[in-house]
Amino acid sequence: MEFRHVLAFLAIADELHFGRAAAKLHLTQPSLSQQLQRLERTLGVELVSRTTHEVRLTRAGKAFEVEARILIRQVEKAGRSAREAAAGRSGTIRVGYNFPAGQHVLPAALEKMQTDFPDVTVVLEEKSTGGQLRALGDGALDVALVYGRPVTSKFQHRLLLRLSMVAVVGRTHKWAGRPGVPFAELAGQTCVLFQRQLSPAMYDAIVRGADQAGIRLKVAYELEDPSAIEILVTARPVVGFASVSRAMLAGAVVGGAQVVPVQLYDPVPVVDLYAAWREGQNNQLRNSFLSCLDAVGPFPGPPLRNSIGS
C-alpha cells in the first residue's frame, strides 16, 4: 500500500467529487482514478462507488476512511517528532555531573530546559570526573560537568565556575575549632586523598598547593571512592580534602559522616568546573542544553577567599 494512494482516497472522501479532489492534490482526474484503483486492488475491496450523478464511499470505504485518517495523523506526528528532534526540541540528552554541578549549575539549567524545551528529557548521571570523561568518550554521555579542562582534543569545553578547596576533618580533630590554617601546616598532618584518575584536576590542585607552600604531603591513603574520605576523617586523625561546595554541608551528614571544613590559605587551592562534550558532532539536543547553560550563567558558586580575613 502506497502512502500517496491513501492520500488520494482521502481527498476523494473529503470532496466526494473527482474533479475537486484531483485539483486539491494537483493531479489530473485520470491519474487520481488510477491511484484509487491501485489502492482498491491492493485491499481487494471497492472503496468508492461512482456514477454519473454521485460519488460516495462504500461500506468498506467508510471503514477504511476511519483507519486511514488515524494513519495520516500518526505519519504527521512522526514527521513533527523527527523535525523537533533534529532541531533539538525533543528527545533525550544524557548529562553527567558531580556534586558542585548538582548544587550550582543544574538547578537553573534544568529549569531553563523545561521552559524552552519541554519535550526534551534530561537523563542525569552522577559520576567522578574520570568516570564522566570515559562515558563521554564512549558515547554514553552527551555532556559532562567535570573538574578541570579536558586535555584531549577529542573534547570541547566551556568554563562554568571556579571553586576553592578546603581541608575536611573529624569533629574531634585539633583543627575542628579553627576557621582556617595555612597550607604549610599540612606538613605536620597525615592526609587522605582519592586516586588521581578519579579527578586529576582536583588532585593536582592539592599537590600544586603543597608545592607552592614548600611542603610535601604525607599521604597515608588514596581511596577509590572520594565520598569515603568523609567517613575516614571521622574515624582517624587524618586530613582530607573537598570542594568548598561539598564542604558547605558541614555539620550535616556528608558521605555518611559528620565532617568539619577548614579553610586553607597561602595558597588557597582552587579547581575549575567545566562543561565538556565531544568534538565534531552536530548534536542539536546537546546544543540546546549548552544554550540553556549560557542563558542562565554565570553561575554563583561559593565565594573564593584569598586569606582568612577576606
Rank of each mutant, 00 (worst) to 15 (best):
K174N: 07
V143T: 10
R171I: 04
G180D: 00
P200R: 06
T172Q: 15
P150A: 04
F194Y: 15
A201I: 06
T121Q: 14
R134D: 11
G188F: 14
F183V: 15
R134A: 10
A109I: 06
L193W: 14
G177E: 11
D119C: 11
G131M: 05
T115A: 10
G139Y: 05
V146F: 03
Q156P: 02
V120C: 10
P118A: 05
V192H: 14
R171S: 12
G170V: 01
V143R: 14
A184N: 07
A184R: 15
L193G: 00
A184S: 15
A108S: 05
V123E: 14
Q156E: 13
V120G: 08
R196I: 13
E111K: 11
P179S: 06
S128W: 12
V169C: 13
W175V: 07
V169S: 10
E185C: 08
T121Y: 13
K127Q: 02
C191T: 14
P150D: 10
L163M: 08
L124P: 03
V181H: 11
G131N: 06
P107T: 05
L133V: 02
L141D: 07
T115G: 02
L163Y: 11
K174R: 14
Q156R: 08
R171F: 11
L163V: 08
F117P: 02
A187Y: 13
L198D: 09
F194Q: 12
P200N: 07
A135M: 12
L161A: 05
V166L: 07
G148D: 02
L160D: 07
D142R: 06
W175G: 02
L159W: 10
L160V: 04
G148L: 09
S164F: 12
Q114D: 04
L136A: 00
L145A: 02
R162H: 00
F155A: 03
F155M: 01
